[in-house]
Amino acid sequence: MKKVAGGPVRTLALLLAGSAVAALTAACSVDLRDAICGSDEYPVAAVGSAGGGSCVPDKEQPPKGSVRYPEGKVPQHVDDKWDKYWQDHALDANGRLITDPDQVRKG
Rank of each mutant, 00 (worst) to 15 (best):
P101E: 14
A45P: 06
E71V: 10
L32Y: 01
G107W: 00
E60G: 11
A22T: 14
G53K: 10
V78G: 00
V9W: 03
Q76N: 15
Q87T: 09
D80S: 08
P101F: 03
G6N: 09
L32F: 01
T25Q: 06
Y42Q: 06
A90F: 04
E71S: 11
A46Y: 01
L15I: 15
G72V: 13
P63Q: 10
V30P: 07
R10I: 09
D102E: 12
L24R: 12
V67F: 00
P70K: 05
L32K: 04
I98L: 15
H77G: 00
Q61W: 01
P8C: 05
A35C: 02
A22Q: 07
A27W: 11
K2E: 02
R68M: 05
S54M: 05
K64G: 08
A13C: 12
L12M: 06
Q76H: 13
V44S: 13
P62W: 05
G107H: 02
G72L: 09
L91N: 04
A5W: 12
D100I: 04
D79A: 14
S54Y: 02
A45W: 04
D79G: 09
R10M: 08
L16E: 10
L16M: 15
G6F: 08
A50T: 05
V104K: 00
I36H: 02
V4Y: 04
R10P: 00
S66G: 07
R33I: 05
V44L: 11
T25D: 06
D92M: 03
K59Q: 10
D34C: 02
Q61E: 12
A20L: 12
G6M: 06
V74T: 12
P101M: 10
A45S: 13
G18T: 15
R33S: 04
D92C: 09
G95L: 03
G18Q: 13
L14H: 01
